[in-house]
Amino acid sequence: MQKYISLLCIALFFLESCEKKPKNLNDSEGKVQKEVISFAPKVTGRILKIYVTEGESVKKGDTLALLDVPEVSAKIAQAEGAVSAAAAQEQMAKNGATADQLKQLQAKYKGLKEQYDFAQKSFRRASNMYRDSLMSPQAYDEIYAKLQGAKAQYDAVVAELDDVKRGTRFEKVEMAAGQASQAKGALQEAHVAYSERYVIATNDMEIETISLNAGELATAGYALFNGYIPDSTYFRFTVPESEISKYKKGQNIVLQVVYNKENLEGTIVYIKQLTRYADITTPYPDYQLQDAIYEIKVTPKDMNKAKNILVNANVILK
Protein backbone atom coordinates (compact mmCIF):
# COMPACT_ATOMS: atom_id res chain seq x y z
CA MET A 1 0.00 0.00 0.00
CA GLN A 2 2.80 2.39 0.91
CA LYS A 3 4.37 1.73 -2.51
CA TYR A 4 1.21 2.79 -4.36
CA ILE A 5 0.90 5.98 -2.27
CA SER A 6 4.48 6.95 -3.14
CA LEU A 7 3.89 6.37 -6.84
CA LEU A 8 0.72 8.48 -6.69
CA CYS A 9 2.59 11.38 -5.04
CA ILE A 10 5.29 11.28 -7.70
CA ALA A 11 2.67 11.28 -10.48
CA LEU A 12 0.87 14.26 -8.95
CA PHE A 13 4.18 16.15 -8.67
CA PHE A 14 5.02 15.68 -12.35
CA LEU A 15 1.47 16.58 -13.37
CA GLU A 16 1.65 19.83 -11.42
CA SER A 17 5.06 20.60 -12.97
CA CYS A 18 3.71 20.06 -16.50
CA GLU A 19 0.67 22.26 -15.92
CA LYS A 20 2.73 25.05 -14.36
CA LYS A 21 3.16 27.97 -16.74
CA PRO A 22 6.72 28.92 -17.64
CA LYS A 23 8.06 31.83 -15.70
CA ASN A 24 8.87 34.90 -17.74
CA LEU A 25 12.29 35.85 -16.41
CA ASN A 26 13.71 38.57 -18.56
CA ASP A 27 10.92 40.87 -19.68
CA SER A 28 10.87 42.57 -16.24
CA GLU A 29 14.17 41.71 -14.54
CA GLY A 30 17.49 43.42 -15.10
CA LYS A 31 20.83 44.46 -13.60
CA VAL A 32 22.40 47.68 -12.39
CA GLN A 33 25.51 48.56 -14.41
CA LYS A 34 28.12 51.31 -14.56
CA GLU A 35 30.55 52.27 -17.31
CA VAL A 36 33.86 50.48 -16.71
CA ILE A 37 37.30 52.07 -17.06
CA SER A 38 40.84 50.74 -16.60
CA PHE A 39 44.22 52.39 -16.08
CA ALA A 40 47.41 50.70 -17.30
CA PRO A 41 51.08 51.81 -17.33
CA LYS A 42 52.65 52.77 -20.66
CA VAL A 43 56.05 51.35 -19.69
CA THR A 44 57.07 48.11 -18.02
CA GLY A 45 58.42 48.43 -14.49
CA ARG A 46 58.34 47.05 -10.97
CA ILE A 47 55.76 48.64 -8.69
CA LEU A 48 57.43 50.70 -5.98
CA LYS A 49 54.31 52.11 -4.35
CA ILE A 50 50.53 52.13 -4.75
CA TYR A 51 48.86 55.30 -3.50
CA VAL A 52 45.18 54.24 -3.59
CA THR A 53 43.01 51.44 -2.22
CA GLU A 54 40.09 49.43 -3.57
CA GLY A 55 36.78 51.22 -3.12
CA GLU A 56 38.43 54.66 -3.17
CA SER A 57 37.22 57.41 -5.48
CA VAL A 58 39.97 59.18 -7.42
CA LYS A 59 39.97 62.35 -9.49
CA LYS A 60 41.51 63.02 -12.87
CA GLY A 61 45.23 63.76 -12.42
CA ASP A 62 45.63 61.81 -9.16
CA THR A 63 48.76 59.64 -8.87
CA LEU A 64 47.80 55.99 -8.56
CA ALA A 65 51.16 54.20 -8.49
CA LEU A 66 54.92 54.64 -8.93
CA LEU A 67 57.03 52.26 -11.03
CA ASP A 68 60.76 51.57 -11.04
CA VAL A 69 62.08 51.76 -14.64
CA PRO A 70 65.92 51.68 -14.52
CA GLU A 71 66.15 50.80 -18.23
CA VAL A 72 64.66 54.18 -19.13
CA SER A 73 67.30 55.98 -17.02
CA ALA A 74 69.99 54.20 -19.04
CA LYS A 75 68.30 55.24 -22.29
CA ILE A 76 68.32 58.86 -21.14
CA ALA A 77 72.09 58.70 -20.55
CA GLN A 78 72.62 57.16 -23.99
CA ALA A 79 70.40 59.76 -25.65
CA GLU A 80 72.23 62.63 -23.91
CA GLY A 81 75.55 61.30 -25.27
CA ALA A 82 74.09 61.03 -28.76
CA VAL A 83 72.83 64.61 -28.57
CA SER A 84 76.27 65.91 -27.59
CA ALA A 85 77.98 64.00 -30.41
CA ALA A 86 75.42 65.09 -33.00
CA ALA A 87 75.68 68.74 -31.90
CA ALA A 88 79.47 68.61 -32.29
CA GLN A 89 79.14 67.08 -35.77
CA GLU A 90 76.68 69.79 -36.78
CA GLN A 91 79.00 72.55 -35.54
CA MET A 92 81.98 71.00 -37.30
CA ALA A 93 80.02 70.83 -40.56
CA LYS A 94 79.11 74.50 -40.26
CA ASN A 95 82.67 75.60 -39.43
CA GLY A 96 84.34 73.56 -42.16
CA ALA A 97 87.97 72.43 -42.04
CA THR A 98 90.33 73.88 -39.45
CA ALA A 99 93.70 75.49 -40.28
CA ASP A 100 95.53 72.35 -39.13
CA GLN A 101 93.34 70.15 -41.34
CA LEU A 102 94.09 72.40 -44.30
CA LYS A 103 97.86 72.15 -43.63
CA GLN A 104 97.60 68.36 -43.46
CA LEU A 105 95.79 68.25 -46.80
CA GLN A 106 98.36 70.53 -48.42
CA ALA A 107 101.21 68.32 -47.17
CA LYS A 108 99.36 65.27 -48.45
CA TYR A 109 98.85 66.97 -51.80
CA LYS A 110 102.54 67.81 -52.08
CA GLY A 111 103.66 64.27 -51.28
CA LEU A 112 101.24 62.65 -53.74
CA LYS A 113 102.20 65.12 -56.45
CA GLU A 114 105.84 64.14 -56.04
CA GLN A 115 104.92 60.48 -56.33
CA TYR A 116 102.86 61.14 -59.45
CA ASP A 117 105.67 63.14 -61.11
CA PHE A 118 108.15 60.36 -60.33
CA ALA A 119 105.75 57.75 -61.71
CA GLN A 120 105.45 59.75 -64.95
CA LYS A 121 109.26 59.95 -65.34
CA SER A 122 109.63 56.24 -64.65
CA PHE A 123 106.98 55.44 -67.23
CA ARG A 124 108.65 57.55 -69.91
CA ARG A 125 111.98 55.76 -69.32
CA ALA A 126 110.26 52.39 -69.33
CA SER A 127 108.52 53.24 -72.61
CA ASN A 128 111.82 54.00 -74.33
CA MET A 129 113.41 50.82 -73.01
CA TYR A 130 110.36 48.76 -74.03
CA ARG A 131 110.54 50.11 -77.61
CA ASP A 132 114.22 49.12 -77.75
CA SER A 133 113.34 45.63 -76.43
CA LEU A 134 115.35 46.28 -73.27
CA MET A 135 112.41 45.60 -70.93
CA SER A 136 110.04 42.69 -70.67
CA PRO A 137 106.27 43.25 -71.13
CA GLN A 138 105.67 42.21 -67.49
CA ALA A 139 107.99 44.89 -66.10
CA TYR A 140 106.48 47.48 -68.44
CA ASP A 141 102.93 46.64 -67.26
CA GLU A 142 103.98 46.95 -63.62
CA ILE A 143 105.39 50.46 -64.14
CA TYR A 144 102.25 51.47 -66.05
CA ALA A 145 100.05 50.20 -63.17
CA LYS A 146 102.08 52.22 -60.66
CA LEU A 147 101.57 55.31 -62.80
CA GLN A 148 97.80 54.81 -62.82
CA GLY A 149 97.71 54.27 -59.04
CA ALA A 150 99.74 57.43 -58.38
CA LYS A 151 97.46 59.39 -60.72
CA ALA A 152 94.32 58.18 -58.90
CA GLN A 153 95.70 59.19 -55.49
CA TYR A 154 96.78 62.57 -56.84
CA ASP A 155 93.35 63.26 -58.38
CA ALA A 156 91.66 62.32 -55.09
CA VAL A 157 93.72 64.70 -52.97
CA VAL A 158 93.23 67.49 -55.51
CA ALA A 159 89.44 67.05 -55.25
CA GLU A 160 89.60 66.86 -51.46
CA LEU A 161 91.68 70.02 -51.19
CA ASP A 162 89.41 71.84 -53.60
CA ASP A 163 86.35 70.80 -51.56
CA VAL A 164 87.89 72.11 -48.34
CA LYS A 165 88.80 75.43 -49.93
CA ARG A 166 85.25 75.92 -51.20
CA GLY A 167 83.83 75.13 -47.76
CA THR A 168 81.45 72.39 -46.51
CA ARG A 169 78.66 71.50 -48.89
CA PHE A 170 75.15 72.63 -47.97
CA GLU A 171 73.89 69.04 -48.05
CA LYS A 172 76.45 67.95 -45.44
CA VAL A 173 75.40 70.78 -43.13
CA GLU A 174 71.75 69.80 -43.52
CA MET A 175 72.56 66.15 -42.90
CA ALA A 176 74.41 67.00 -39.69
CA ALA A 177 71.52 69.21 -38.56
CA GLY A 178 69.08 66.35 -39.22
CA GLN A 179 71.16 63.95 -37.16
CA ALA A 180 71.23 66.47 -34.30
CA SER A 181 67.42 66.82 -34.43
CA GLN A 182 67.03 63.05 -34.44
CA ALA A 183 69.22 62.73 -31.36
CA LYS A 184 67.23 65.43 -29.55
CA GLY A 185 64.01 63.60 -30.41
CA ALA A 186 65.37 60.37 -28.95
CA LEU A 187 66.30 62.21 -25.75
CA GLN A 188 62.83 63.75 -25.53
CA GLU A 189 61.26 60.33 -26.04
CA ALA A 190 63.37 58.90 -23.22
CA HIS A 191 62.30 61.71 -20.87
CA VAL A 192 58.64 61.12 -21.74
CA ALA A 193 59.05 57.40 -21.03
CA TYR A 194 60.68 58.24 -17.70
CA SER A 195 57.76 60.46 -16.72
CA GLU A 196 55.45 57.50 -17.39
CA ARG A 197 56.81 55.76 -14.29
CA TYR A 198 53.93 57.55 -12.54
CA VAL A 199 50.54 55.96 -13.29
CA ILE A 200 48.17 58.95 -13.44
CA ALA A 201 44.38 58.81 -13.45
CA THR A 202 43.10 60.19 -16.75
CA ASN A 203 39.49 60.18 -15.51
CA ASP A 204 37.45 60.27 -12.35
CA MET A 205 36.96 56.68 -11.18
CA GLU A 206 35.64 54.53 -8.36
CA ILE A 207 38.34 51.86 -7.96
CA GLU A 208 36.92 48.35 -7.87
CA THR A 209 40.05 46.18 -8.15
CA ILE A 210 43.84 46.62 -8.06
CA SER A 211 45.44 43.80 -10.03
CA LEU A 212 48.99 43.81 -8.57
CA ASN A 213 50.79 44.61 -5.34
CA ALA A 214 53.93 46.60 -4.59
CA GLY A 215 57.03 44.67 -5.66
CA GLU A 216 55.34 42.92 -8.58
CA LEU A 217 56.19 43.55 -12.22
CA ALA A 218 53.64 45.61 -14.18
CA THR A 219 53.92 45.20 -17.95
CA ALA A 220 53.04 47.98 -20.38
CA GLY A 221 49.36 47.94 -21.26
CA TYR A 222 48.34 45.60 -18.43
CA ALA A 223 45.23 46.91 -16.62
CA LEU A 224 46.53 47.72 -13.15
CA PHE A 225 43.45 49.57 -11.85
CA ASN A 226 39.84 48.73 -12.78
CA GLY A 227 36.73 50.55 -11.71
CA TYR A 228 33.64 52.52 -12.62
CA ILE A 229 33.06 56.00 -13.96
CA PRO A 230 31.05 58.01 -11.40
CA ASP A 231 27.54 59.10 -12.35
CA SER A 232 27.37 56.52 -15.13
CA THR A 233 24.75 54.20 -13.62
CA TYR A 234 22.36 52.53 -16.06
CA PHE A 235 20.08 49.50 -16.09
CA ARG A 236 20.33 46.58 -18.51
CA PHE A 237 17.46 44.24 -19.35
CA THR A 238 17.35 41.28 -21.74
CA VAL A 239 14.01 40.67 -23.42
CA PRO A 240 12.94 37.89 -25.83
CA GLU A 241 11.62 38.67 -29.28
CA SER A 242 8.09 37.70 -28.25
CA GLU A 243 8.02 40.50 -25.64
CA ILE A 244 10.05 43.26 -27.32
CA SER A 245 6.99 44.99 -28.84
CA LYS A 246 6.15 46.37 -25.37
CA TYR A 247 9.19 48.64 -25.38
CA LYS A 248 10.29 51.57 -27.55
CA LYS A 249 13.31 53.85 -27.61
CA GLY A 250 12.63 57.00 -25.57
CA GLN A 251 9.91 55.33 -23.52
CA ASN A 252 9.72 56.36 -19.84
CA ILE A 253 9.49 53.48 -17.38
CA VAL A 254 9.41 52.89 -13.62
CA LEU A 255 11.69 50.31 -12.05
CA GLN A 256 12.43 49.07 -8.56
CA VAL A 257 15.73 48.07 -6.95
CA VAL A 258 15.16 44.67 -5.36
CA TYR A 259 17.45 44.89 -2.34
CA ASN A 260 16.16 48.24 -0.99
CA LYS A 261 12.74 48.46 -2.69
CA GLU A 262 13.57 51.96 -4.01
CA ASN A 263 11.57 53.08 -7.05
CA LEU A 264 13.28 54.98 -9.85
CA GLU A 265 12.20 56.55 -13.12
CA GLY A 266 14.19 55.90 -16.27
CA THR A 267 14.25 56.28 -20.03
CA ILE A 268 15.01 53.63 -22.64
CA VAL A 269 18.03 54.89 -24.63
CA TYR A 270 18.45 51.95 -27.00
CA ILE A 271 17.18 48.51 -27.93
CA LYS A 272 19.57 46.21 -29.76
CA GLN A 273 19.73 42.53 -30.65
CA LEU A 274 22.37 40.48 -28.87
CA THR A 275 24.76 38.35 -30.87
CA ARG A 276 23.52 35.10 -32.36
CA TYR A 277 24.95 32.86 -29.64
CA ALA A 278 22.50 34.50 -27.19
CA ASP A 279 19.43 33.19 -29.07
CA ILE A 280 17.27 30.81 -27.12
CA THR A 281 17.53 27.06 -27.71
CA THR A 282 16.17 24.03 -25.85
CA PRO A 283 18.25 24.53 -22.64
CA TYR A 284 16.07 27.66 -22.01
CA PRO A 285 12.50 26.33 -21.85
CA ASP A 286 11.05 29.57 -20.45
CA TYR A 287 11.39 31.26 -23.86
CA GLN A 288 10.03 30.21 -27.19
CA LEU A 289 12.46 28.12 -29.18
CA GLN A 290 14.81 30.20 -31.38
CA ASP A 291 13.60 33.53 -29.97
CA ALA A 292 16.05 36.35 -30.68
CA ILE A 293 17.23 38.15 -27.55
CA TYR A 294 17.32 41.95 -27.26
CA GLU A 295 19.15 44.18 -24.83
CA ILE A 296 17.41 47.25 -23.42
CA LYS A 297 19.48 50.02 -21.84
CA VAL A 298 17.72 52.35 -19.42
CA THR A 299 19.25 55.50 -17.92
CA PRO A 300 17.87 56.98 -14.70
CA LYS A 301 16.23 60.38 -14.81
CA ASP A 302 17.71 61.28 -11.41
CA MET A 303 21.37 60.23 -11.38
CA ASN A 304 21.82 61.41 -7.78
CA LYS A 305 19.36 58.74 -6.63
CA ALA A 306 20.93 56.05 -8.82
CA LYS A 307 24.65 56.65 -8.37
CA ASN A 308 24.89 54.88 -5.01
CA ILE A 309 23.05 51.73 -6.06
CA LEU A 310 25.27 48.66 -5.90
CA VAL A 311 26.61 47.41 -9.23
CA ASN A 312 25.02 44.16 -10.51
CA ALA A 313 22.05 44.53 -8.14
CA ASN A 314 18.72 43.18 -9.44
CA VAL A 315 16.04 45.59 -10.67
CA ILE A 316 12.53 44.93 -11.91
CA LEU A 317 10.08 46.86 -14.05
CA LYS A 318 6.99 48.03 -12.21
Rank of each mutant, 00 (worst) to 15 (best):
E29G: 04
M1K: 02
A313G: 03
N260G: 08
T209C: 01
K249Y: 09
D27I: 00
Q138V: 08
A11R: 04
F235Y: 11
I244C: 15
K59H: 14
G96S: 11
Q153I: 00
G167W: 02
M129T: 13
K60N: 15
A119T: 07
Y222R: 02
E114C: 15
Y198Q: 08
N314I: 11
G111M: 13
I271P: 10
S38M: 04
N226A: 00
K20Q: 11
I309L: 12
L212G: 07
Y194C: 03
A65C: 09
L105G: 00
K172A: 04
K184T: 11
E54P: 13
D231S: 08
L105F: 13
V72T: 04
K248R: 06
L7G: 12
D27Q: 10
A220S: 05
V36L: 13
L310P: 03
A313H: 02
P70I: 04
A126S: 07
Q148D: 00
G45E: 08
T168I: 00
K172Y: 10
M175E: 03
S136R: 03
Y4Q: 08
A180S: 02
Q188G: 12
N312R: 09
A87N: 13
T168C: 01
K307C: 07
K3S: 06
K20E: 11
K103I: 06
E29N: 03
S127C: 07
R197C: 07
P22F: 15
Y234M: 03
K23A: 14
N24Q: 05
A156Q: 11
D155V: 01
R197G: 14
R46G: 10
R125N: 14
N128K: 07
Y259S: 12
Y130E: 15
K34V: 01
V164L: 08
K23Y: 05
F14T: 07
D162Q: 15
L289P: 00
L8I: 05
Y228P: 07
E174D: 13
D231L: 01
T202F: 02
R131A: 11
I309N: 03
V199K: 01
S242P: 00
L161C: 00
T238G: 06
E160P: 01
E206S: 06
E295D: 14
P41E: 06
G178I: 10
Y259V: 10
Q78C: 01
F118A: 13
I293H: 06
